[in-house]
Amino acid sequence: MTARTRNWLLLAPAGAWFLVMLIIPLTVVFIFSFGERAPAGGVVPAFTFEQYANLPARWAAFKNTMTLAPIGTLSALLIAYPLAYYLAVKSSPKWKTILLVLVIVPFWTSILIRSYAWIFLLGGRGIPALLDWVGIEGVRLINTPFAVLIGIIYGYLPLMVFPIFVSLDKLDKRLLEASSDLGAKPWRTFLQITLPLSIPGIATGCMLVFILLMGEYLIPALLGGGKVFFVGNALVDLFLQSRNWAYGSAVAVTLVVVMLIAVTVYMRLITRLGASREDVSIM
């Protein structure tokens, strides 16, 4: 067996998988997006840009997604980072394992079940009742963008914690001692050493959460009461309710394109940040 054949064999399973599960469906969706809705639903082949021309009708869904996805990502980052930092740097080895398991445990239950728990917590008999009891009255949480944000942060937190934890955990702790030894106060050590060296983890975590959030539909459906509408929800509606496959395909293609653009811009940003570490370290 030549090395070439071997390489092909190594790539074959993944290649076949991508072809069947990604390339072919995407191609089909792309072709559908130029078609028209069949009278009783579905698609009739055509070549029209009508579906794309109609995209502004889903502007609100795109706007919601493009607002809440970055906000959700950023909020998850702000909450995940101190947690990951504590796990990787501060906790004792024994507690580290226990706490890591606790971070994973929610993953053992479906996000659906956990979101239902949030429906109760955010509903009138949950947290608002508690706030009412301490004198803060009239707080409404469920079916608001804020409820969706809470669900998003809750659901995606482990995905953010892990890459950051890994990058902080493998960070050589002697670098922190060296920084302190050279006269840097703790927070300056954090800004100049810890933070820049954990950028790969931050980048991975943000990317992971952001991409998944762009396609999210379950959390807005459950915690947004149908009022906080993501592109994902629009797609479910278009394919399962109004059965407008052509328009649904156009929306899906647009979502993929928007995602690609966002990711490209993001990667550029991260690379630039990496290249200008001098500025980071001189802060």
């Binding site: 809705r37 009278p39 639903g41 609100a60 509408f229 629009a234 278009l238 109004s242 407008n244």
Partner: peptide
């Protein structure tokens, strides 16, 4: 009502508004 594209699209627009 089941097949009318306007009703279907109206509902979808209402939800995503």
């Amino acid at each position: 009502t089941l097949t009318d594209p306007n009703r279907a699209e109206l509902m979808a627009r209402f939800k995503s508004a």
